[in-house]
């Protein structure tokens, strides 16, 4: 079975180095803190690491994203390089549009047309990993919820009850960076 552990492996190596460095004083607590970091939700100044595609594992730059979609999946990466992949709830989708095509609310959060949302569908919690050319919108492949990426991921089709939570973004030398935390609850609220 191919694993999804490439991100974890990367973290583990970092962790090992850190533990060695702090072994004399802080070994136990440092490990706990590091593991916690990888599970914490995205925070300002986080960057993103691609989960898929030709640049898998690399830091996401604005120009890596095709103008007009589709989205790419990524995990937030803390300033110290820890990829926050210990919780599936941290998975995000990134896409780039002409800023003029965005609603005011979405443009305020976007960075030069780049938008970021939680990838976790608000219907049943599946990753929103599909794209509809016809609707030019995000689609959840499990049950067909459709979200408008240009308008705060409002639900425009299917069974989802709420929009996806959005992240505020900024660009630092072209690198897509978190400016503000999730705008709302991530994932499913029921059950």
């Amino acid at each position: 079975m191919p694993g999804n552990d490439w991100l974890h492996c990367r973290c583990y190596k970092r962790r090992t180095i850190l533990e060695l460095a702090l072994a004399a004083l802080l070994a136990g607590s440092a490990r706990a803190a590091e593991e916690g970091e990888a599970a914490k939700p995205p925070a300002p100044d986080d960057r993103f690491a691609f989960l898929t595609g030709p640049k898998k594992g690399q830091v996401v730059r604005a120009e890596d994203l095709a103008l007009g979609g589709p989205q790419m999946q990524a995990y937030p990466m803390a300033p110290d390089g820890t990829v926050r992949s210990d919780s599936r709830l941290n998975l995000v989708i990134l896409a780039r549009f002409d800023p003029a095509a965005l609603t005011d609310e979405t443009r305020t959060r976007a960075a030069d047309g780049v938008v970021a949302y939680s990838a976790i569908c608000t219907h049943q919690g599946c990753p929103v990993n599909a794209w509809s050319n016809e609707r030019s919108a995000f689609v959840c492949s499990c049950h067909g919820a459709i979200y408008d990426p240009r308008n705060a991921a409002e639900v425009i089709g299917g069974p989802a009850p709420r929009p996806l939570a959005a992240l505020g973004l900024k660009l630092k030398d072209g690198v897509v960076t978190v400016a503000s935390t999730f705008s709302g609850h991530v994932g499913v609220t029921q059950n």
């Binding site: 999804n4 599936r88 599946c126 990753p127 599909a130 959840c140 492949s141 499990c142 067909g144």
Partner: peptide, 16 residues
């Protein structure tokens, strides 16, 4: 399609 363990991987998306 590139497979991501735990994600839909049929080769066709629901809208299609």
């Amino acid at each position: 399609e590139e497979r991501v363990p735990g994600q839909w991987w049929t080769g066709v998306a629901i809208p299609d």
